[in-house]
Design a protein around this nucleic acid. Structure first.
Lengths: 239, 239
DNA sequence: TCAATAGTGTCTCTTAGACACTATGAA
DNA sequence: TTCATAGTGTCTAAGAGACACTATTGA
């Protein structure tokens, strides 16, 4: 750090600074497809467009704390109940026409109940199916029509899904999209929704069971008109 | 974005803002081991400790542009000649005792010539071997003694090496650590240095050749006292 | 010729896909 | 008993580790 930077360090007013925000990709599975929760913008810029929930980072607040706060405020989710992971920081000069804003993007994974609870708790949110399109994503509204997405949020959503695709196979993130107890069929459906491709049943079962992450509960799903499947629980082998 | 945020958006002086910096992990291979270039801090805080090269992000400068600028200023590397990749953004409240500073960390991969050129061009830099230690890294100085590392830069270095380990196998980042022409032995040595483990020769050769990334140059290495190996060039199959 | 590494052939083991099969619970 | 899905056995193909082998160059 050179002299100029050193002095700046002790004089917060010396230089202009960009604003810093967090933006959250609230991702769940809806009707077998990946979906995100978006908010409609009423004001300029991008009025009428749809944006990721976000907020400014306070001076006395860590980045992850800011993301947790937005998660609670906008989606009503308790801290710690949701998988939250930093994605990337977006800082193009003109990404917001008003002023320089750097945004730290986060991925939050909601299971079906959390996704529904967020929608019920905040009527301004809508669920949008995500369709990957290179390094951009198209958001499809509940009526099946594409939604205009504000700022660079299409890229952020695309990065979120791409990141998830890359790691769902070898990491345990998939379980964050399921309730505590789930069947192997539901687990496979989650993987298929994220990857966008069908998977081989015996191979999938073998792989999952061999990882040692699953403990059978001894109980079975209820309310099926066919043979009910065993319910499993995720167990981190390092616990 | 709510009303408060909207107003803040038009009044840059309304709220305090954190400072924003970029920090660079300049990573190369030195004597068969991963090594980073560090700068000695003369001033408080962490005077006498060693830090990653970094700098503040200007208002009219993109994040990657800022990283490129630091790369040129501190390591004398031409833009575009070096693999540069965003790692993670660090924003703990107390990571700098003077003030709130958020830092976007970047990984820059230098081949042997670039690593040596940076050292020659900036005498303040020293090379430090990296030893991973959980989610922290120890920097070992040229004399073999551990160096005290400033701020949270040990974590940043650890993340850089961990990230590289995770992707060297399936991506083409390994080639960024080699000159334009290289032997399969050199490529294997780079992979072994990053992974910290020996690799099986026939399997490694097969894997690399099967990827279709390598084109034989028809020439061979020179100056060996034994059978000289074929020189290869990296060719992106998407070019 | 020797030393040292380049480069290859082949066996085995593990893992995943494909496909067909048996098992079981609800209606 | 039927139906739909749970859950399994087995064949095959691909890829990686292990190991030994041949090839080639400089000294």
């Amino acid at each position: 750090m050179d002299e100029r930077e050193f002095l700046q360090g002790y004089d917060p007013a010396a230089y202009d600074r960009p604003s810093l925000t967090v933006d959250l990709v609230l991702l769940g599975i809806s009707q077998g497809q990946p979906a995100v929760l978006l908010l409609r913008r009423d004001d300029h810029p991008f009025a009428g467009h749809w944006a990721l929930p976000g907020g400014f980072v306070a001076m006395d607040e860590g980045l992850e704390d800011a993301a947790q706060r937005v998660l609670e405020d906008k989606a009503g989710q308790q801290a710690g109940h949701v998988h939250l992971e930093q994605l990337y920081t977006f800082g193009a000069i003109d990404r917001d026409p008003r002023m320089r804003i750097i945004s730290v993007a986060w991925l939050a994974l909601l299971d079906e109940a959390a996704f529904a609870a967020a929608l019920a708790g905040n009527p301004a949110l809508i669920p949008a199916r995500v369709v990957l399109d290179g390094d951009n994503a198209t958001a499809i509204g509940p009526d099946g029509m594409p939604l205009p997405v504000a700022f660079d949020h299409g890229q952020i959503i695309a990065l979120a899904l791409t990141r998830l695709r890359g790691k769902i196979d070898y990491s345990d993130v998939g379980f964050a999209l399921l309730p505590e107890c789930f069947t192997l069929r539901e687990l496979q459906q989650v993987h298929q929704a994220i990857l966008g491709t069908p998977l081989n049943k015996p191979a999938f079962r073998r792989r999952m069971l061999d990882k040692g992450w699953l403990t059978p509960t001894g109980t079975r799903e209820q309310g099926t008109s066919y043979r009910p499947a065993e319910l499993y629980r995720f167990k981190n082998p390092f616990d």
